[in-house]
Design a protein around this nucleic acid. Structure first.
Lengths: 224, 224
DNA sequence: CCTATTTGTCACAGTCCTGTGACCTCGCCC
DNA sequence: GGGCGAGGTCACAGGACTGTGACAAATAGG
């Protein structure tokens, strides 16, 4: 069901959690280090991340912060210590929950489901930005009530921009997120695609209301 | 700030939590029973509810279920027992978090903020220095509420300075950090760029408030 | 197999940005 | 106060970036 990213350096704990969560019906990918986890977030976009705090190299809290810069996905921190200060620091770093080991798999599962449930209800399938309505369930976009036809790539790019409203996303990021390519950096692909979307959704493409160019950095979707 | 509904039957615990949360800047309404809490949800629509599980009359988990039928507001369950089964049952009942008493007020506050943050779905990566606001996610800079346009290089330099508030950064360092290292150290490049930023963000560029010159060393960003 | 659609690439033009050097001003030290 | 060196200011030409339309390759559908 959910694509879970699990990071835990202790092999036996890792295997145990992976097995337990898989049994609960989740699809789990497990790593031992933060670096691998960050790569995974960049390339595979999991639904939720579970990070052990004590990791070799970059620690879990720092991984949490870095993931936050990449993606708003929910994060559960896992730790052997239940120190109050740790909890506060972890949550301030952007984590959604902080769980003390050892944890019963069914408890972890319940917490995962609680967070995902909240996320579902908080992010409905239909998003409205002024005249622009994006139906993520039906994969339909309409402007002022009239349905707009977007091609698959255009739709993926628009959805990716919309997932981070107000944030500037650079071309490299978008190339990785929308196209799976390990593309050359100086490709005009993103520009061309943005331009095509603008032609369809912007009343005045030359003076965009939704997708703004941020020279030297990338593009930003922001509600009008 | 947030309208918190607190339900706890033990008067001393109730008073303690109410005080602590109020001190953290929340607006708290406290009750001793679930019935009162449900009335409050119906009439006042709080932003978040914190429920003790052991309550006279309707217990906290049941209150949680009934609130869920009324309103999707986030709920934190509070309990003296940390039984795994209780946790699972509580979260299944629709709670967003489950905290075991005794709880440090700052931990509770951190958990409240984590949930509210998730709900607002906004992680405003914002820095504020007096009138100057720098949004690192949106890459927007504003002064006294009015948006300022910075060019890419100006923005990179400002961000680099802001990353080390109060520290003097020399020109060589800035050349490496902001420009690629292929530039000669002995140029007016950094100065010119600082000057351009000052012209945009300093009320009186000749008497800078944000970016200070440290003769013979470099520049220092320090909040006013 | 043919056609229509979609997608990646390219060239070009316009706009905006930026590094540079010259020159000026200021602060500091004697 | 004078001299010196560091920093401020400025204009401008070259360069970097992006928008745009055209086009060919890839793909899907009939």
């Amino acid at each position: 069901m959910a694509g879970i990213l699990l990071v835990e350096d202790d092999p036996s704990v890792r295997a145990g959690l992976e097995l337990a969560l898989t049994r609960q019906g989740h699809s789990v990918t497990a790593y031992a280090t933060g670096e691998e986890a960050l790569d995974h977030v960049r390339s595979r976009r999991p639904e939720i991340a579970i990070l052990d705090v004590m990791l070799p190299g970059i620690d879990g809290v720092e991984v949490c912060r870095r993931i936050r810069r990449l993606d708003p996905l929910p994060i559960i921190l896992l730790t052997a210590r239940g120190d109050d200060l740790d909890v506060v620091v972890g949550l301030e770093a952007g984590a959604d929950d902080y769980v003390v080991k050892p944890v019963e798999p069914r408890v972890l599962d319940a917490r995962i489901r609680a967070i995902l449930r909240r996320l579902e209800s908080a992010s409905p399938d239909r998003l409205t930005f002024g005249d622009l309505v994006i139906d993520r369930g039906a994969l339909k976009v309409s402007l002022a009530g009239k349905e707009i036809h977007l091609t698959p790539t255009e739709l993926r790019l628009l959805l990716e921009l919309v997932r981070h409203p107000g944030q500037v996303l650079n071309r490299r990021y978008l190339l990785r997120a929308v196209w799976d390519h390990t593309h050359v950096a100086d490709s005009r692909l993103v520009d061309a695609c943005v331009q095509r979307i603008r032609a369809k959704i912007e009343p005045v493409p030359a003076d965009p209301v939704y997708i703004h160019t941020v020279r030297g950095f990338g593009y930003r979707f922001s509600p009008p």
